[in-house]
Amino acid sequence: MRPVLAGLALALVATPALAQTQPVASAPPTAAPDPARLAVARELADKLIPQGMYQRMMGENFNRMMESMVGSAAEIPMRDFAQMGGMSEQDVAALGQTTLRELMEIYDPYWKERQQRMMRSMMGEMGKLMSTLEPKVRVALARAYAREYTLPELQDLQRFFATPAGSHYARSSMELMMGPDMTQAMAEAMPQIMQQMPALVQAAQAGTKDLPPPRKPEDLTPEQREKILKLLGPKAEQPAKK
């Protein structure tokens, strides 16, 4: 259970940033943007994603946001988690208002500190990773801007970014998403998110109910087993050592 909250918080906040770098396999190929628009868009992308931006975003403000979200989630009654997991209404009602924090403090007296250290360690590594991806994000953002905006619109943005207010906006707009105001909003939203989670799980189940269940190992034919062994490589075909 300990990594659950960390993973949930990371998924809720970090995913929008990561999504900028993730290729969509099903997306149709797109034509190259207009070179004139792309040239201006590249300048804008450089201002919107300055060097080291992600490292700063994953710094202290992000850590505070994550810790606030995890802390809020820890105060959610266990019955909400149980309902999300498919427990019957009768069993859920028997759980009362016991929170995840109360339960985890029995299992692990250092639970809160462990969560904070795990989160900060994860965010430190995430900051390093995202810093290596910054050039790709700038290229992607420039192409997106070149397709979305006309050349006159891009030039208007260029002139705005050259002003003191525009320069301030460009370098700070994305980092503000990790600021104290967003931290408070995300922390306050956690109970509502968890309350809605069972409905999301049910919707996912309903969307796949007509599909056959995944195969179990015992369901595989000899041909399928052989194919898996070949895909996994020669080491997979060797018997396990006793």
Rank of each mutant, 00 (worst) to 15 (best):
R171M: 00
L12K: 06
E67S: 01
Q115M: 09
Q184I: 07
L151C: 10
L129T: 12
R64S: 06
R159M: 00
Q195E: 14
T30D: 07
K136A: 03
E89K: 14
L231N: 13
M84H: 05
Q158M: 00
L48E: 09
G86W: 05
M78K: 12
R101H: 02
P77V: 07
M190N: 03
K209C: 01
G86Y: 06
P198Y: 05
V201D: 07
V139R: 08
M190G: 05
G166P: 02
T21K: 06
V139L: 04
M104D: 00
Q116K: 14
P239W: 07
E43Q: 13
L44I: 14
G71P: 11
L133F: 11
D219C: 03
Y107N: 02
Q90W: 00
A146N: 11
S68L: 06
A31D: 13
Q224H: 06
M87T: 14
I106H: 02
G52I: 01
A41D: 10
V40F: 10
M186W: 13
E218P: 02
P180C: 08
A170K: 01
A36G: 04
A204N: 15
R215C: 01
K136E: 05
I193P: 02
T163W: 04
M58H: 01
L176I: 15
A17Y: 13
S72L: 09
I106G: 00
L200E: 12
G124W: 08
S131E: 15
L220V: 04
Q90D: 05
R138K: 15
A27Q: 13
T30K: 14
Q22K: 13
E226C: 00
E105G: 02
Q196T: 12
M174T: 06
M126I: 09
R171S: 10
L44C: 05
P135W: 06
S131V: 05
G86K: 06
Q202A: 14
